[in-house]
Write a protein that binds this DNA or RNA. Structure first.
Lengths: 134, 134
DNA sequence: CAGTATCCGTCTTGATACTG
DNA sequence: CAGTATCAAGACGGATACTG
């Protein structure tokens, strides 16, 4: 009976469970936490930004990836796209209320990680010494 | 002066800034939020687990990916690996205090997303109707 | 049980070029 | 400015087989 799964209380009674392979929340979580999704949401938390402003904020993202990321976030209802039909075109991206809720929690995580990087780096050195020498 | 970067107060004064391409925090954040990293941390939040228990919890992960993920998290000092030299071998994985701090924030994000999936799914339907019909 | 090693296809990514 | 289209390189992921 080692394989019997005990339900994790307070989690499995939700309609969506990210631990399950087929749950749609897994997809959204991947958009949010993906390589560029999180940084994009984080950048937009400061306020609305235009496409190229965003590109400069999110250091290293290509046009293609930013475009793709924004589409996914817009489709999930986390980002609102506001296009002015001027010439040259001007398009502003901003978080929706739902997007803000997600960005807040994401930034909490990001700031926590940033604040602990010295510990992480120290742990890495220890690990590499111990195992690397072997 | 459209390219002048205004510092984001309360963020850029940190020694590590995940928005910068070369910042090591980016790497750690990717371990944490990667496809399997987040789910692994989330599973371990409940308590220590053995390798194959973990594999069953994190639905869909392969041995290779779980092993790889655990190594990265252990190296970053988020997970502790406790191996008993018995036969058959028994290895328990558990969060370090640092890992718990990160897992808490990650779970806050995960639960929030899970709780809003109906909104997300509705947004997707709207998006697909509007744009898909075009 | 707890992994490691290897093969191999797929999916992502980044450069580059081009459009409105 | 705000993207889209295309393509090659490489990272990523899964299946399988094997080890201690």
């Amino acid at each position: 009976m080692t394989t019997t799964q005990e339900p994790r209380e307070g989690l499995d009674d939700l309609p969506y469970n990210v631990f399950a392979k087929a749950c749609p929340s897994r997809g959204t979580l991947e958009h949010v936490t993906g390589r560029w999704g999180g940084l994009t949401l984080g950048a937009l938390y400061e306020g609305s930004l235009r496409f190229n402003e965003l590109r400069r904020r999110v250091d290293g993202v290509s046009e293609k990836m930013l475009s793709q990321t924004l589409h996914a976030l817009e489709r999930d209802g986390l980002v609102h796209r506001e296009a002015q039909p001027t010439n040259p075109p001007r398009v502003d991206y901003e978080l929706t209320p739902l997007g803000r809720g997600i960005a807040e929690r994401l930034l909490s995580l990001i700031h926590f990680v940033e604040g602990r990087m010295d510990d992480v780096l120290a742990a890495r050195r220890r690990y590499d010494e111990t195992r690397g020498a072997r």
